[in-house]
Simulated assay, not measured.
Amino acid sequence: MINRSKQLYSHTGDSKSFTRRMEEDVLPFLFTEKIEEIEQHDESSRVLSQNDSIAQVFGKEKPSRVRGVGFGLTPTQLFGLNSHAPGNGVEVEETQRKLLALQAELEGKKFKRKAMENEAAAGKKKMQSMERALIYLFQT
């Protein structure tokens, strides 16, 4: 009681310490910054997987949950039976080979699409010039 009466100022900063308050304000920003940095260097880390940017920042998933997808979903349900087993080198190599083949096919299709768009634009210009010529002929 005597010490209480000597107190000049009352504490009004809630029950959290300044350190805890600062961690709560700064840590989410640091995690977000780290995730963005990883995603800039590796586009594939944006895709939900066992090694996505969130897993790289926060660590491996626990067997009972997957971060960011809600309650009840387990890694086995989301990623398959071997979600915690280390990948077979041959499987990884085969997957990478298929990925490269698909990327090459996609690039080929993009090239063909661009060629078709250019051809369509040229055809449109030709039609417009023919239309102008017909209008000129009918006016004379």
Rank of each mutant, 00 (worst) to 15 (best):
L8W: 04
H41F: 05
K60F: 04
S49R: 00
V90K: 03
A104K: 15
K34Q: 00
Q40E: 15
Y9H: 03
K114I: 05
F29V: 13
G80D: 05
R65W: 13
N82R: 11
A85Y: 09
K112V: 00
E93K: 13
T19H: 08
I38W: 02
F58N: 05
E23N: 15
S45A: 10
E36N: 15
E37S: 07
G108V: 01
L73G: 02
S44N: 02
R21A: 03
A85H: 07
E36T: 04
E37R: 07
R21H: 07
S10W: 11
P86F: 04
K126C: 06
P28I: 01
A121S: 14
A101G: 11
Q139A: 13
S64V: 09
L8G: 02
V47I: 12
E23W: 15
K110N: 14
K109A: 06
V92T: 03
G89T: 08
K126T: 12
A122V: 10
A104C: 04
F138Y: 08
R46A: 03
N3S: 07
A101I: 06
T95Y: 14
R4V: 01
Q139I: 08
F71I: 02
K60Q: 09
G80S: 10
R4W: 09
E107K: 15
Q50A: 11
F79Q: 02
R20A: 00
Q56C: 08
A115R: 10
Q40Y: 10
S5L: 13
K124T: 07
E131V: 12
T76V: 14
K62I: 11
Y9I: 06
L134W: 15
K98Q: 15
L73P: 01
S129W: 08
P86W: 04
N82Q: 06
L99F: 12
P86Y: 02
N88D: 13
E91H: 09
Q103E: 13
N118S: 06
Q96V: 07
S17K: 08
K62D: 10
E23Q: 15
L102K: 13
A85R: 08
V92N: 03
F31S: 02
M22Y: 14
F111M: 05
N51Q: 07
N88I: 05
G87W: 04
R67W: 06
V57T: 05
V57D: 09
G108F: 04
F29R: 07
E37Y: 08
L137T: 07
E24I: 03
I38Y: 06
A85V: 09
E24Y: 04
S129F: 00
Q96N: 12
L134N: 09
E94M: 14
R65A: 13
S129Y: 03
V47Y: 08
A121C: 01
S64N: 13
E36C: 04
E24P: 03
L27S: 00
Q7S: 03
D42E: 01
M1V: 01
M127H: 14
E105L: 08
K60M: 09
L137G: 00
L106T: 12
E61P: 01
F111S: 12
Q56R: 15
L106C: 12
E36K: 11
T12P: 06
G59M: 06
F71G: 00
R113Q: 10
S49T: 04
N3Y: 11
R67C: 05
I2Q: 05
D52Q: 03
K6T: 12
T95F: 11
V69E: 04
L81G: 12
E131N: 13
P86A: 00
T140P: 11
T76R: 12
G13D: 02
